[in-house]
């Protein structure tokens, strides 16, 4: 099963993703971390997420670029966090943003279960510069591709999942 979770910053997406994973097999759990640790703030965020995942049996792969090359075994139960960071790395660290959507599709096809976390960055009404607008447009395209290949998609609103597509697995 492929699941897409979106929502604003700090809305509880990760916590819900982990609850979903809890109901899935423990065997083959992989956490795909896309954020590059650049400063104390991101280090703190990574630490917080790590503490929450502890005891859930994840193997962690730090994979900021080229998702398609991540050594994820067939039949894995994967949590990918998150698409905005992956796209930013592909765009601004010499990658190729065009590979993100096909890499996602290949990953979904390979995994027994895949939970994809993305972000809603589209509703603050701020007129950004051209490069940021292009980033937003590409992220929107990737989010749409991810929703297309997902069996269940939800927006998490302050810890409450609001279904966008399909049916929530029992948790």
């Amino acid at each position: 099963m492929t699941i897409l979770l979106t929502g604003g910053s700090g809305c509880g997406k990760s916590a819900y993703a982990e609850r979903l994973i809890d109901a899935m097999p423990r065997e083959g759990r992989v956490y795909l971390a896309t954020m590059r640790v650049a400063d104390d703030e991101s280090a703190l965020r990574v630490e917080r997420h790590r503490a929450r995942r502890a005891g859930r049996g994840f193997r962690t792969l730090e994979w900021p670029l080229a998702l398609g090359e991540a050594p994820v075994a067939a039949g894995s139960v994967a949590l990918l966090e998150d698409l905005p960071n992956l796209l930013a790395n592909e765009m601004f660290s010499g990658g190729d943003w065009r590979r993100v959507a096909p890499d996602l599709a290949a990953l979904a096809a390979k995994c027994r279960h895949l939970v994809i976390v993305t972000n809603d960055v589209f509703s603050d009404g701020v007129a950004y510069d051209g490069q940021t607008r292009e980033y937003m447009r590409r992220l929107a395209l990737i989010n749409r591709a991810a929703a297309e290949l997902s069996d269940y998609a939800a927006e998490v609103v302050y810890s409450i999942p609001v279904t966008l597509k399909g049916e929530a697995p029992c948790v």
Partner: peptide, 20 residues
């Protein structure tokens, strides 16, 4: 207030996270 591009100012980022 969380559905936007990550704010440039650290205090805005902190506020956004805290509201969530």
């Amino acid at each position: 207030i969380g559905a936007g591009i990550v704010p440039l100012a650290a205090e805005d980022r902190l506020w956004r996270e805290a509201v969530g």
